[in-house]
């Protein structure tokens, strides 16, 4: 059975030699799409890394449904079901060719080379990257790298997605493609972003992270009051909401 709820309970954590980030944090991902905002250094990325087990909290637990994630096998189980898109796609694409990188996850999960390849080709086609199979990863453009990185995550058929600033450094066309793709995905997810328009188009709920605490607000609230963002005077898209 696929897990349906991912929870952080009473998390206490701080990076070594720095003030504590979280003193008693609770967080849950169920069915919806959550946007996560907050200042630089407020701990947004750390929060996602705690979920993935890249850092371990001093106190508190990570839970997938009723299973407390503790042992190595638990973490493998969690990572099998939760996909994490890194900020920098270059960190995520380490194989020489695109298809090898996309097939890397399925191969590790025990699929045969033929099945892994087929899965990879299918996901690439779905993301509009058909024909990219034998391209070299380090020769791709920034936007293409981001899309391929997303493909490497989606091919593992995750039950939850964690996206760390996915629209960073993307041109408007690639950004729009990403919005369409993410809006079509039927997977609960958390998106860290400073890109308000992107969040309003893709998420239904916003948490802001301040001083180690999460504050909840609906996405619509973001646009019921005047807001400012870079290049706000340029024509831009506010998604389904018509706020001008």
């Amino acid at each position: 059975m696929k897990p349906s709820c991912l929870r952080l309970r009473n998390i206490v954590f701080g990076h070594p030699a720095r003030p504590p980030l979280f003193k008693d944090l609770d967080f849950a991902i169920g069915a919806g799409r959550i946007g996560l905002i907050g200042q630089n250094g407020s701990g947004k990325t750390t929060l996602l890394q705690l979920i993935m087990g890249l850092y371990h909290p001093e106190k508190g637990r990570v839970m997938l449904d009723d299973r407390v994630i503790q042992s190595r096998a638990d973490w493998c189980y969690l990572r099998r079901h939760v996909g994490f898109l890194f900020q920098d796609a270059d960190d995520q694409l380490f194989s020489p060719t695109v298809i090898e990188d996309v097939a890397f996850g399925p191969l590790n999960l025990g699929d045969s080379p033929e099945i892994s390849r087929r899965k990879g080709e299918r996901i690439l086609a779905r993301l509009g990257l058909a024909g990219f199979e034998n391209r070299l990863t380090h020769h791709l453009s920034g936007g293409e790298k981001k899309m391929v990185a997303l493909a490497t995550i989606l091919v593992m058929e995750p039950c939850f997605l964690l996206l760390d600033e996915p629209t960073n450094n993307l041109d408007p066309i690639t950004r729009k493609r990403l919005v369409t793709i993410i809006a079509e995905l039927d997977i609960p997810m958390v998106i860290i972003s400073h890109d308000w328009d992107f969040l309003s188009a893709t998420t239904s709920l916003i948490y802001s992270l301040e001083h180690g605490h999460l504050h909840r607000s609906e996405t619509a609230c973001l646009h019921t009051h005047p807001h400012a963002h870079p290049y706000g005077d340029h024509p831009h898209d506010h998604g389904e909401h018509d706020h001008g």
Binding site: M52, L54, C76, R79, R80, F84, F86, D88, D90, D91, Q92, F94, I99, E100, A103, F104, G105, L107, N108, L109, P113, S116, R117, T152, M156
Partner: peptide, 24 residues
């Protein structure tokens, strides 16, 4: 630093030390 992040990325995708080749 990058090596660390790459290693994390591999770990998250189920890497256990052995590269499985896709080639026939």
């Amino acid at each position: 630093q990058r090596a660390r992040r790459v290693q994390q990325a591999m770990l998250l995708r189920g890497f256990s030390g052995e590269f499985i080749s896709l080639h026939s």
